[in-house]
């Protein structure tokens, strides 16, 4: 098993004719993901990497029956693209786009929830079920199949941990990047619940950062989990009031500090690593590797 994506995923790429969309469609195909189509308004009838392009999501749904979509549409149009996918019955939507306006996302997140659609992101690297399916921009070659589930607000930091795990012959089940924006479709707690029910996942790594209180909420849920969780929080030395790269990585009014997150996780019995290599050590310890 694994969560969210696997060999049964039938993916369309919204924005497939753009530079990023075309490049990553190729990378996902090379990884073995079943990319069944793409959507770019006005480019219907063309092909990208041998994959048919449609003008609308509706047309793609009728023709190639996708169950997932990945979005590479520019920020001004990305919320519309998410809504188009959701209204046309796509069950899983992964929004890579960075820089979508907050008010657009508030409306969009509320709509996709009301439709029971799973949205990952925006401003995220997507997700991968190792050796099964890549739906995102993660570098497929560093992953190997195994028992570790990962969920993270950061892209490259996640790759660091994955590379560290794979180097010690510890593989991954599914790795999910939930994104660095303040308003996102899927939060830590949602993914932790999925890992808790996944038979392949024996240990979960959760990588948080400053801003918001998702980690604190997750800590409450972790108290009820059977699957052990290891955590890491970045931004322990970040100053207040400064946006640290991600739109959501900001301490404001004394809230969203790394210290508060670390304290909540430690109170839930979660080991919080101080360094990347410590994360790998904790996981290896739990798996007795």
């Amino acid at each position: 098993m694994s969560i969210l994506v696997d060999k049964n995923t039938r993916l369309i790429v919204q924005g497939i004719t753009g530079r990023e969309g075309a490049f990553h469609a190729g990378q996902m195909l090379a990884y073995g993901t079943n990319v069944v189509g793409g959507v770019t308004p006005g480019r219907g009838g063309q092909e990208v990497h041998g994959v048919p392009v449609f003008n609308t999501v509706r047309e793609a749904v009728e023709t190639v029956r996708p169950n997932a979509s990945i979005i590479f549409v520019p920020p001004a149009f990305a919320a519309e693209a998410i809504l188009e996918a959701a209204e046309n019955g796509i069950e899983l939507i992964v929004a890579i786009t960075e820089g979508i306006p907050v008010q657009d996302m508030i409306e969009t997140v509320q709509y996709v929830r009301s439709q029971g659609v799973r949205l990952i992101g925006p401003n995220c690297p997507g997700l991968i079920s190792a050796e099964k399916a890549l739906v995102g921009i993660l570098p497929g070659r560093i992953f190997k199949e195994g028992p570790v589930g990962m969920v993270s607000r950061s892209g490259t930091l996640t790759y660091e941990v994955v590379a560290g795990l794979s180097a010690r012959d510890i593989g991954q089940s599914t790795v999910v990047g939930i994104g660095g924006d303040p308003i996102i479709g899927t939060r830590f707690i949602d993914v932790l619940q999925m890992f808790e029910e996944d038979p392949q996942t024996e240990v979960v790594v959760m990588i948080g950062e400053i801003g918001g209180s998702d980690e604190e909420e997750a800590a409450e849920y972790i108290k009820t989990m059977k699957t052990p969780v290891v955590s890491f929080i970045s931004g322990r030395t970040a100053p207040e009031g400064k946006r640290m790269g991600h739109a959501g990585a900001i301490i404001s009014g004394g809230r969203g500090t790394a210290q508060s997150k670390v304290a909540a996780l430690e109170a839930a019995g979660v080991p919080v690593a101080n360094t990347i290599s410590e994360i790998v050590d904790h996981v290896a310890g739990i798996l007795k590797k």
């Binding site: 993270s152 607000r153 950061s154 892209g155 490259t156 930091l157 996640t158 660091e160 660095g180 990588i207 950062e209 400053i210 970045s234 931004g235 322990r236 030395t237 970040a238 640290m244 790269g245 991600h246 990585a249 101080n274 360094t275 990347i276």
Partner: peptide
């Protein structure tokens, strides 16, 4: 560095080594 989380962690590691970014 590349990636917000990676850069934030780099700042944290510099502080752990007794310096400041």
């Amino acid at each position: 560095g590349n990636g917000a989380g990676l850069v934030m962690t780099t700042l944290d590691m510099i502080q752990r080594s007794g310096g400041k970014a």
